[in-house]
Design a protein around this nucleic acid. Structure first.
Lengths: 299, 299
DNA sequence: CAACTCAATCGGGTTTAACGATGCCTATTG
DNA sequence: CAATAGGCATCGTTAAACCCGATTGAGTTG
């Protein structure tokens, strides 16, 4: 049997439902002769009659062969409709988006993004992958937040500059800006030397400032706890500080640095030449929007 | 989304498999430009790109939208193939045939028909519906064996004439033909007055012969048992007698009648204007063949 | 027999399908 | 940097398919 196309099967089903070629034509918006020709073509394709035409004003009746084709044809049409519905849902934004992230963003930016996305698309499926690495895994997710540029065929969209602040126990430094040189030899609690942290430490070194790193930990909260405990001070991006509950006991204070360190840059990355789903495109828009709002409110 | 046809989905799958439009074209027997146009048409139909074209000598990559279409499309294509296979099987004779029948035919004709049909089409499904009624239910089955003509839009195919014989205990009548008049007043065991039996009894009456019906039963074997037991004689079609184990004890003998009763006619019936499945068509051929063989061997 | 209801068919205009040739883009290579 | 090669898009053309409108033919009904 050569292939029958979906249009012919639609016509077949309409005729089976309506009983006559003419009524089927009316339902489908064709003329009777067109239906006649389509059924003829279908019969040629399957190699046998699908309807018996009794002649006269009697409705046609489906043949055994026609019944076989009709049964399968209806399934096929149903499946085609399912596909159309799936495509429409996809385009409407129902679907999945996988987002790579890291702590600061997870705490400050992402909650707002996710909130707005779920408000717009309640049916969508958002998966977050949080990893603190030097290289973003841009090929395993749709989008990745990252604090730096990446190698390879990756598109970069800069969301905001995240300036570094000095966090210290109140009293350690006088209020107001602190000169970089004052950190030379000072006890410092720091994140591990990955991502933008390496750049920070390189900047210190280049300026001849050599702080004493007394403790490293991945947990931002842990860093602050250690500062609060008096182990040392910390130089952290504002996003990181902002996300934490800094003033819970009034023990900690923040200072700007003079001269300021080059800020950490927060990017949104994705694989180049990739067509985004509408959902992913919307995530990008929202992220830009949220970042702009952050900048506008001077946090 | 407007509908995408199966040809486009086939092309989509081929491109997804092969990686480039050109190789997909080669596989499908198209040219590259045709594939390009088909994908373009598909993309117009679904309302978005299904492939990313990186440009240069790199293979295309499917988009998220394309992945949705492809996943459903493959199912659709598989289903279409299933349909094609079902149609082919149907045309090859795999399928079902429903046959109406009655005792004599069930015993003598049908076993041969069924045997040959199953030899030719081991996968086919044969369903038999045996009923002893005055009117054949020709609309509920594909074919019906029947001992007479039917009303309405029914096609008749005469298979054979089934002459009536007198069955009696040996000694009741002298060997050889028996005159009809000899049955006047004779004790007779008979089937119920349905189907051809009414015609038999009308013929007797028209000729002034009035046998004494001493027992009626639907079971042909029961009729013979009663005759064997000496309850009376019986006038039965040869098919009925032939199917039974007449000579198991040598007690029974058969006689021709003079003048002969008009024979019972065995027909194969089906609803007029109905297109037969190949299997049904074959059943008709085989039935004709078997009947002809019966006639030829003079049973 | 006339009227009616169907499906099939014919002729013609329009759209679609496929091809072949060509052009453009990108990555590779010398 | 130029040349090359591999990839897709586009254009013009031809053949086929599609759909329509009108007509014909078959079979039923009044």
């Amino acid at each position: 049997m050569s292939d029958a196309d979906l249009r012919q099967l639609t016509t077949l089903a309409a005729v089976a439902d309506e009983g006559t070629f003419g009524r089927a034509a009316a339902r489908l918006g064709y003329t009777q002769s067109t239906v006649s020709q389509q059924i003829a073509a279908l019969e040629k394709a399957v190699g046998g009659a699908v309807f018996d035409r009794p002649g006269g004003p009697k409705p046609v009746r489906i043949t055994p062969l026609g019944a076989v084709v009709l049964a399968h044809g209806r399934e096929l049409l149903a499946k085609a409709q399912t596909m159309a519905a799936a495509v429409d849902r996809f385009k409407a934004g129902d679907g999945r988006v996988d987002i790579g992230t890291f702590q600061s963003v997870s705490n400050v930016i992402l909650p707002l993004v996710v909130r707005r996305l779920r408000d717009e698309h309640p049916g969508c499926d958002i998966r977050l992958f949080e990893e603190e690495t030097d290289q973003p895994h841009v090929d395993e997710v749709d989008l990745t937040f990252f604090d730096g540029r990446a190698e390879g065929a990756v598109e970069h969209l800069k969301l905001l500059d995240d300036p570094y602040l000095l966090v210290a126990r109140r009293g350690t430094f006088p209020d107001g800006p602190v000169r970089l040189a004052q950190l030379d030899g000072a006890p410092i609690v720091a994140p591990p030397p990955i991502c933008d942290q390496v750049r920070v430490e390189q900047t210190f070194a280049r300026r001849g400032v050599r702080p004493r790193i007394v403790f490293r930990t991945t947990g931002n909260e842990t860093v602050l706890s250690m500062v609060r405990a008096g182990l040392g001070s910390a130089v952290l991006p504002r996003l990181t500080v902002h996300g934490a509950d800094l003033d819970s006991d009034g023990l900690l204070g923040t200072h700007e640095l003079r001269p300021a360190l080059p800020p950490r840059e927060i990017f949104l990355l994705w694989q180049a030449d990739r067509t985004h789903s509408p959902l992913v495109a919307r995530v990008i828009e929202i992220a830009v929007d949220v970042a702009a709002a952050k900048i506008a409110e001077h946090w």
